[in-house]
Write a protein that binds this DNA or RNA. Structure first.
Lengths: 250, 250
DNA sequence: AAATTAATACTTGTATACAACTACTAATTT
DNA sequence: AAATTAGTAGTTGTATACAAGTATTAATTT
């Protein structure tokens, strides 16, 4: 499995025509590369190299790395480097618990009213999903797109921010579920059925049902992760590998 | 009411002996000044002036302002300036609702085990509270100290971060409750009874009860805020002043 | 006199030289 | 040979000159 591109240039080729991205765009781009494991945990992110790759100086890069550090995706050490964070199993579990719990909060407090554009977006998204051949990479990105869309259905900006931050810290483990071609197909199937339900909820204008569905699929994913962990490393939480990287190696 | 010191130098006098603060310390110091209304909403924060005041260059100041912007306390506009954010009444209400809801999450998911140092801290804090004469300023800071202590009783760093961020965005309105000497006394009384209950919970090792108490006092504060608003500007949420600044002016 | 425009002072954003720190390597000492 | 030390390359942190943008003021035009 190719986790780490030797140079980020390749990943940037599509945007070379318009060299200078905004800081926010650089942030989103880098975040995606981390969340899709193109930049694996423990990868060293050199400010100078990133600056070269994105055609900017170190200053905007440092702004981006600061944001990523606050989000918990990057860890910077003076004189040493900036490193993509790793997550241990215990942490991951507690983040999942928090995410699941936070969905109840969203269901209780959210007052967003769905409009036609929302339905149109999800319809178009569904069409893309059912008519495409997916790789792990592209399916991962699609699922992130769906998450980001779902975030726009939350009216409270704080809730949106919290939910997003937690998502970014768990989504990398999604990859663990899809090492085989079989699992990938299952995942695509699962996404399609979820989408059908989500669209139904959206067309009824029921955001609470929408997020209840999202919650149930999140819980299912969590169950899958737990089963995967226990199948490979048993019930004892202390003996198994603690980090994502170790799990991928074994 | 003196909301805005002409120059921050005065507020810094106590730390002039050791001029160079760490970035984190500068962040905390500036955050306190914003949360205690020493720096009122809409105050312009000049990077150059702040750099002079804290004996550093603009670079560390920009790091701090970035953090404060992510926390929602500061708003930076290119070419114009950095401004302390204001909060409107609707926003404030939804933040309170979220904070109240988040306490339930803390009660459900928290697994922190209380130790002797925790009890000792709260005991010492109680002694300070009952034996001191409080100004609005010092009482405000004491309540922030209590919040920060309570945060250390949460084991999940994400929950801690979220709760803190929400707190920082509501605590400035605490001031609205204490324009009169009477209200200040009431508040001190309230703090003392809360502390007695919190200590009892802590000594039993019951963090869930501890946070249930915290929650009930938060709800009480929210009720007070609502009553104050309605008493001054009626039930219609749209006619009253939308911003904190306007409310203080009237 | 009013409206428009140009000029100016001031602000944040960017690039970059240098300082502080880390980690690895090779030379030196024991 | 092993341990220690000094050196060196490479990293992030800081200070600062300059670029880009804003907002006020003064000059110009109508």
């Amino acid at each position: 499995m190719m986790l780490n591109t030797p140079s980020p240039i390749a990943a940037l080729s599509s945007i070379e025509a318009n060299p200078r991205l905004s800081n926010e765009q650089i942030l989103q781009h880098l975040r995606r590369r981390i969340c899709t494991l193109q930049l694996a945990p423990s990868t060293k992110l050199s400010e100078v190299k990133l600056a070269r790759d994105y055609y900017v100086s170190r200053t905007p890069i440092r702004w981006v790395l600061n944001r990523l550090e606050m989000e918990g995706l990057v860890n910077t050490r003076h004189g040493s480097g900036s490193y993509v964070t790793d997550v241990n199993w215990q942490e991951l579990r507690s983040i999942y618990h928090l995410r699941i719990d936070l969905y109840d909060t969203v269901i209780r407090l959210n007052h967003y009213t769905i409009n036609d554009k929302d339905v149109a977006w999800l319809d178009a998204f569904q069409n893309t999903v059912v008519s495409s051949q997916w790789s792990s990479q592209s399916l991962s990105e699609a699922i992130m797109d769906l998450f980001e869309f779902s975030s726009t259905l939350i009216d409270d900006p704080y809730l949106t921010q919290f939910a997003s931050q937690l998502y970014f810290n768990t989504t990398r483990f999604w990859w663990l579920l899809h090492s085989s071609k079989d699992a990938l197909d299952t995942e695509q199937q699962s996404l399609e059925t979820e989408l059908a339900q989500l669209i139904a909820a959206l067309k009824l204008g029921q955001t609470d049902i929408y997020f209840a569905i999202r919650k149930s699929y999140l819980m299912a994913n969590y169950q899958k992760l737990q089963q995967l962990y226990q199948a490979n490393w048993g019930l004892d939480k202390t003996t198994g590998p603690t980090n994502l990287m170790k799990m991928l190696d074994e």
